[in-house]
Design a protein around this nucleic acid. Structure first.
Length: 599
DNA sequence: GCCGTTTTCGGCCCGACTGTTTTCAGTCG
């Protein structure tokens, strides 16, 4: 995941500080808790290794002050933090894990501990069985029963349950389509971390615009996916699906839709930054609009709200409070001062605008694409080429598996015969160059299929890992770098080989890999398959910082899979990818010139 | 605990829903 090993450990340490301090201060809104959360975001956004930074240097990271800097240094130098040790002693894991129970917050937890001596899950269960919770101040039989039920379903609906985007996104799109079809609805959209293209999500947030909220609420409550209603009010209903995934639906007035989706898309930290800008101007920003007293400044669209706040529009995947708000302010200032040279000269060189972000309509071709020549391919060559041409692609690389991939691969004779069939099709598609390519298999030591001479015959190659996922980081890094250095390799496919929520990817020293990509002018793939999204957006952002070339692919194995390009582009946006770094946004001439310079 | 071209102290985002309450605290997002 993001950052280096050291950064990951620091982030985990800060996360534990957040959780235990929430318990200690009895509020997730405690200023200390929020300070630690902000520090965590700062480390995540930093990207580069912080292991060698002094305390003074650490305080230059956004959200890290003197105290947190000292804790981070203490943690890196000694492996632990005194304050964390004290919190752990006060709130041992068996007690702290009770905070995962939905509906049981820090105040109630401490009350239960103080009044009933509850120290772990077993004790909590007995207290409920003995009907002791209902006697406590502020509780009753109803809350006692709710907590009992939440415990029963802990594994299914607990607060730290995460659902892979590949499971959640198709469901969310179905729900949005169903709700948009309700006559009372004028618009609907999924929001939350799903709209930001997070790899895993906690719940699905859907916003519906309507003048008739009761009709929408009724449609939600009776939706076939709503297995269990968690709560339902005038404008908000939450339900659980049969798999325990929570769906929150909110209804707003049609002219408040922009403010609502802005609010519900988050991230929370991004919203706070926006609200701060509103406060600075004497305004109020909430899910109903940007308000100056009783006057509505903007509410119908997200664009109008960003504009009123002096910000360029920030695409949802970038809304993680990792520098996009200041960058959007710079972009807006540049736009406002367009032509005004003096204004631009005075800009602080550190104040960078938003990148000229890659968008779906920039894409000119797909460069990781299978046919039924591959054992796992499911559509014939002619069909795969036809749907690609229908997309309007100007170039397409057919990259069936090389011979080293057991069962799915093709030997030399099969590949040469494949080339004939591809060349025969070319005449039917004058607008689209069809490349005879190959998905090479990166062996355990970095070796590739066939031999140097045969590999050099291909018009284009993508080299990927498909096996040996458990080598250590040093070996895996050496393996990938060796493949990158091979002169017949154009690009590296699905960098880590992960399947989100199912299989972790190989461990890599990312800076070393990125440096090798730059040095050898090899492109890094952003694979649009929802269960891969590999390279991950945080790796992409670090690649962008180094000027690594990128390529966004569908890795299609069937004619139905071309829609993945959108997910690849959104992942690229989440990694702040500018259009010019993405080789498959280039013109046909520019792309072919680059591809041929490699082989 | 962090932060500052209106501040080095006094602020720190905002609202829905529920259950237990007669006006609000807790939880959640």
């Amino acid at each position: 995941m993001p950052g280096t090993g050291t950064n990951q450990q620091v982030i985990a340490m800060l996360d534990e500080l957040v959780r235990l301090t929430t318990l200690d201060e009895e509020s997730p809104q405690s200023f200390k808790v929020r300070a630690y959360e902000k520090a965590k975001l700062g480390v995540e956004a930093h990207g580069e290794d912080i292991g060698e930074l002094s305390a003074a240097q650490l305080t230059r990271i956004d959200g890290i002050g003197k105290s947190t800097a000292a804790k981070i240094r203490e943690f890196i130098d000694t492996g632990t933090v005194d304050k964390l040790e004290r919190l752990r002693a006060e709130y041992p894991p068996s007690f702290a894990e009770l905070a995962k129970i939905p509906g049981l917050g820090p105040k109630t937890l401490k009350l239960v501990r103080r009044e009933l001596g509850v120290e772990d899950l077993d004790a909590l269960r007995s207290a409920i069985a003995d009907e002791k919770l209902r006697a406590l101040k502020g509780l009753g039989a109803t809350r006692e029963a709710k907590i009992a039920k939440a415990i029963e379903r802990l594994g299914l609906t607990g607060k730290d349950r995460r659902t892979p985007i590949a499971e959640a996104l198709p469901l969310a799109r179905r729900l949005v389509a169903d709700l948009e079809a309700v006559p009372a609805a004028t618009q609907a959209a999924y929001c939350g971390s799903l709209r930001r293209m997070a790899e895993t999500i906690g719940d699905i947030d859907i916003t519906v615009a309507s003048d008739d909220p009761p009709s929408i609420m009724a449609a939600v409550v009776h939706h076939p996916e709503a297995t269990e209603i968690v709560l339902t009010g005038d404008t908000k209903t939450s339900f659980l699906t049969s798999t325990g995934l929570q769906v929150d639906v909110r209804v707003v007035e049609p002219d408040q839709f922009g403010a609502a989706i802005l609010y519900f898309t988050g991230s929370k930290a991004h919203n706070i930054a926006l609200r701060q800008r509103a406060i600075d101007r004497g305004w109020l920003l909430n899910e109903y609009g940007l308000l100056d007293g009783d006057d509505v400044i903007a509410s119908a669209t997200e664009e109008a709200i960003y504009d009123a706040l002096g910000l360029a529009y920030v695409p949802p995947p970038m809304r993680e409070a990792t520098g996009e708000v200041p960058a959007a302010a710079v972009s807006a200032a540049i736009a406002a001062a367009a032509g005004d040279r003096t204004g631009e000269a005075e800009r602080d060189p550190d104040d960078r605008p938003l990148p000229d972000l890659v968008e779906l309509e920039h894409i000119q071709g797909d460069l990781h694409y299978h046919t039924d020549r591959s054992g796992d391919g499911r559509s014939p060559l002619a069909d795969m080429v036809a749907v690609a041409a229908a997309k309007g692609w100007r170039y397409l690389a057919i990259t069936d598996h090389g011979e080293d991939l057991a069962i799915n691969g093709s030997n030399r004779e099969q590949m040469l015969e494949h080339r004939e069939r591809i060349n025969a099709l070319q005449g039917d598609y004058p607008e689209m160059v069809i490349l005879w390519g190959c998905e090479l298999n990166i062996g355990p030591d970095g070796g590739l299929d066939y031999d140097d001479e045969f590999r050099a015959l291909f018009d284009y190659t993508v080299a990927s890992v498909h096996s040996h996922f458990d080598q250590d980081q040093v070996d895996q890094t050496r393996r990938i770098v060796r493949a990158i250095e091979d002169p017949t390799v154009n690009s590296i496919g699905h960098l880590t080989g992960r399947y989100i929520g199912r299989r972790p990817g190989i461990e890599l020293d990312i800076p070393t890999v990125l440096d090798a990509l730059v040095a050898n002018d090899v492109a890094l793939e952003i694979n649009g398959a929802l269960d891969r999204l590999d390279a991950a957006s945080d790796v992409v952002r670090r690649a962008v910082d180094r000027g690594v070339k990128l390529v966004i692919n569908t890795d299609s194995h069937h004619v139905s899979e071309l829609g993945r390009m959108e997910y690849g582009v959104l992942t690229a946006q989440r990694g702040w990818t500018p259009r010019e770094l993405v080789i498959n946004t280039w013109s046909q001439d520019d792309f072919l010139r680059w591809a041929r310079s490699r082989t």
